[in-house]
Structure formats: C-alpha cells, structure tokens
C-alpha cells in the first residue's frame, strides 16, 4: 500500500488539530423556488467512511455539488479543515483537498488513460508550472501504482473514451485517488458495474478509508453491506436518519420514503 503510505506522509505535514474534517452547516440550495437542499447539515471526521442514501431526487448529488463549489448555497456554510470554503472558486476548493467523482463518468475521453491519471496526480496545479519539463518520479510511481490497482495497466495508452463503462468508473476513481485529496466524494461509483466489479470497488474503497475520508453515494444495498459504514439517509433535501446499515435497513421511516420503487432493494 505504497500509495496510501505516501498520502499519509503528506497529510502528516499538516497535523490535524481536531478530528473534524468537513462540516456542512444548515445548507439550503434553492433552484428557482425548488429547495434541492433544505437546511441540510452533515459532519465528517478524518479518516472515516460515510454512505449517503436517499430516493431519487433527494439532493445527494446537489450536496456534492455544493461542497465542491459547482452549485452555490443559497444559505448555510461549508467548513473544511476549519475554514469556510462556501464561496471559494472550484479549483481552489479542490486544491485544499476535496475531489469528487461524478455520477456520469467524468474522464477526459480524448486523452490516454495514463495522461488522465498524470493530470490528476500533478501536485503543482498552477498554470505556469506546466511549462517546466519533467515529471516528478514520485508522481510517476504513484500513477503506475494506481494503474495496477484499478486494473488498467495494460490499457494505459488507450484513449479513455474507448474504455468500457465500468472501466471508466474505475479510471475516474483512480483519478480522484491520484489527487491525494483528503476528502473523496464518490457519487454512485458502482453504476453500470456487475456484482464482481461492485465487490472489487467496495474492497478498494475500504482500503482508501483511513488515509482519506470518503463519502459514498449509492443505492445498491449489497454494495452498502460490503462497505459496512455509517449511513446517512436524506429525503427531499433534508436529513432523515443516521445509523448502521442494519439499523437503517430495519428503520420504518426509511422504508416509507423508499416504499414503492426501491422497496426490493432496501429489504435485500
């Protein structure tokens, strides 16, 4: 787990004062009168894994968008590492240590797999540094390792656009990890994957926890069981419940909001 060790080393330079990494504080997002998030709050401690579920349209993706700066909160604040990042530009938020995997795979289709990862792994992301020659050996080693981990080492030179859907998902997870972000937001990382790939993804995510703090959004109950983390349930832009996978599965309120469409999923 060299990649993980490397990450731990970098984090080690900024000794965490408190275990609290992220605090979403009463955030409301108003789309022309429709409140996709309605006074939603959430806190994440360093090195933990959290799963966020909720029916379609509950506001899960909007929460990620708000944390990363793609959508701006109408009211409320996002605090990351004790600093208010609510109004920072997107790239500035990312540089502080948050990276997000999008719901639809966001790889760069025209670039090779390895170039996708190299761009993500780059530590100095200021424009003038891109004129300098050479790649840090550490970045190269990290990319080579991630290529192995996500099983795409033999496709490194292929254009990312030619990958199968599941492979794109893995590449994007690899890119998010390559950034060494402290907080990883993974929006439906197993969409389009079969059961075997889903288990592999769960194993990968569990290995990331500790060095990274991970927030996973997913609907797939068997995936959630394999992750075995605390679950937060949201509904109509609001907090509904929080608890272990078992407790959430047994919860009547949660069953009620899922009733009809995803009842089969929720009850295994």
């Amino acid at each position: 787990m060299n990649a993980m060790a490397a990450t731990a080393h970098h984090i080690g330079t900024t000794a965490p004062a408190s275990p609290l990494l992220l605090a979403v504080d009463g955030v409301t997002v108003d789309f022309d009168g429709f409140k996709a998030l309605n006074g939603f709050s959430l806190t994440l401690d360093r090195g933990t894994l959290r799963v966020l579920i909720g029916p379609n349209g509950a506001g899960k993706s909007t929460l990620c968008d708000t944390i990363i700066g793609r959508v701006r909160a109408t009211s409320g604040r996002v605090i990351f590492k004790d600093q208010d990042i609510t109004h920072l530009p997107e790239h500035e938020i990312v540089r502080r240590g948050i990276c997000r995997k999008f719901q639809t795979p966001g790889v760069l289709p025209g670039l090779s797999v390895v170039d996708n990862l190299m761009i993500a792994a780059r530590r100095d992301r200021r424009w003038w540094s891109t004129f300098r020659h050479g790649v840090a050996a550490e970045e190269k080693a990290r990319v080579a390792e991630i290529l192995e981990t996500i099983g795409l080492a033999d496709r490194a030179a292929a254009p990312a656009g030619q990958l199968a859907h599941g492979e794109k998902q893995w590449l994007e997870i690899g890119m998010v990890v390559a950034t060494r972000a402290d907080l990883l937001l993974l929006d439906e990382p197993t969409a389009g994957m079969g059961p075997a790939e889903t288990s592999q993804t769960a194993a990968l995510i569990r290995r990331l926890v500790g060095q990274h703090t991970v927030l996973v959004i997913d609907h797939d109950m068997s995936f959630l069981e394999q992750l075995d983390a605390r679950v937060t349930v949201m509904h109509q832009g609001q907090f509904l419940k929080e608890g272990s996978v078992a407790a959430i599965r047994a919860d009547a309120d949660v069953a009620a909001v899922y009733l009809g469409r995803t009842k089969g999923d929720t009850h295994g």
Binding site: H91, R95, G106, V107
Partner: peptide, 10 residues
C-alpha cells in the same frame, strides 16, 4: 475536451 473536469481536478 472537458473544461469542467479539469476545474474539478484543481
């Protein structure tokens, strides 16, 4: 190819 993706890579 993906201005937004690049933005969200920092």
């Amino acid at each position: 190819d993906g201005e937004n993706r690049i933005r969200f890579l920092g």
